[in-house]
Simulated scan of single mutants.
Amino acid sequence: MSEYSLKTSKCSLLPLRVILVFFVSLVALYICYLCMNQITVEKNARDALFTIRKAENLCPHNIRPEEIQYMHFPQPRTYNRSGSGWFETLLNSHPNVSSNGEIFSIKARRADSSSIMKTLDTVYNLDWLSSAAKNECVAAFGLKWMLNQGLMDHQKEILTYFKAKGVSLIFLFRRNLLRRFISVLANDYDRQEKQLNGTHKAHVHSREEAEILARFRPIINTATLISNLSDAEKAIADCLQYYSSIRHIILYYEDIINNQDALSRVQEFLRLPIRKLVSHQVKIHTRPLSEQVINWKDVLKTLNETQYDHFLNHVDYYS
């Protein structure tokens, strides 16, 4: 097996690299944008009035006119290696959802607050072009936004923007931060080694590819392990505290895997017709934790009888 020290990946020590999959599927006033011929909005000092002329062929969801003002732009937010890519493919399998991916991974789009607002405006005006964009019946649209992509650097401006636009947030976390940490190390290793025919893949669509990537086992630096887990917890808590005033829902990766009701709850949150959501991605790490780390005995010794010892035997995947 390959050995890969934590020291080779300084970025994975940053708290902002944790999995906070903060997913932003923004829905608001454009809820029936291409499902209706015309939406006329008249505003007075206190109320917004919506006059709607329906087309002959409506979208499959039924939204009462008086509810439209409460619709939102959902935005998924996440940490690295929390299952955010998989979750986004599930969302995009719904015929009325367009989530446009990790658009703030490009630094120019998050260079400053004005760049961020300009990018968000493009998404909210339905002018963003991506493979996920749907041309009709879009009820929820948005993007995936990681914590280390300017989200926590321009909090005040982003919070004001979200409130003004009626944005709703989907927070995606992973309960077992130790499993997430191992996944981060494995992903960083493949980014360097490109094990699949010279190509780095954070997500795979075949069992054969998943098995190749799963062969790698890292050596975890136990001297910094507890502080890494603590930093991850703090980053999650800080983000939740700051954005808690925005309409939101909190999801956990493990719950989505093991409880189909979790996806129904997401669709209800987005006020969508309930559909079976599917993804062609294949999970990479399915083995017990003891088989995923070379120095597992050292990890056991480090975390035993600490606040993190419940991660050692926690199972997040049932085959």
Rank of each mutant, 00 (worst) to 15 (best):
I170L: 12
V123E: 10
I170D: 02
K283T: 08
V315W: 01
P15N: 05
A214D: 03
L120H: 04
T224W: 00
S113V: 03
L272F: 05
Q155N: 03
L147T: 00
N313A: 09
Y33L: 14
N295K: 08
K301I: 15
Q241M: 03
L270H: 06
V97Y: 05
K163R: 10
S290A: 07
L151E: 08
H200E: 02
H72D: 14
A48C: 09
E56P: 04
H285L: 04
I212N: 02
K165P: 02
Y308W: 15
G150Q: 01
I246Y: 06
L126H: 13
G85N: 09
Y243M: 01
E102W: 03
I257Q: 11
H314C: 12
V184N: 12
S290R: 10
N304W: 03
M36S: 12
K234F: 04
S244Q: 14
E193V: 13
A235I: 10
F216Q: 15
L251E: 00
L6H: 06
D121G: 05
D261P: 12
Y318E: 15
L213Y: 03
E254K: 04
A108D: 00
L58Q: 03
D188G: 07
A140N: 13
S279Q: 04
I219L: 14
G150A: 00
Y252L: 01
F173P: 00
D127I: 01
R53M: 09
S115T: 15
H94I: 01
L178M: 01
F269Y: 07
L34E: 12
Y4G: 06
D188R: 09
Y70I: 05
F181A: 04
I257W: 03
E136W: 06
L172T: 03
M1R: 12
A140V: 13
D255L: 03
I294Q: 10
E88Y: 06
L240S: 15
F141L: 11
K201V: 08
K134P: 07
I246E: 04
T78H: 07
D190P: 05
I170T: 09
A223T: 11
S244R: 15
V18N: 12
L172G: 07
V27E: 10
R247V: 13
G198C: 15
A262Q: 00
Q38E: 13
L229Q: 11
N62A: 06
P273G: 02
A133Y: 03
N295H: 11
H205R: 10
S130M: 12
E42S: 04
G166C: 05
V24T: 10
R109V: 00
Y4I: 07
W145R: 09
M1S: 14
R247C: 13
A232L: 02
N57C: 05
T119N: 04
L303Y: 07
Y124K: 14
Q267S: 06
Y308G: 11
L20I: 06
W296P: 05
L312K: 10
K118P: 00
N313I: 02
N125T: 11
L151H: 08
A108F: 00
I226D: 06
T306D: 13
P60S: 12
V282A: 05
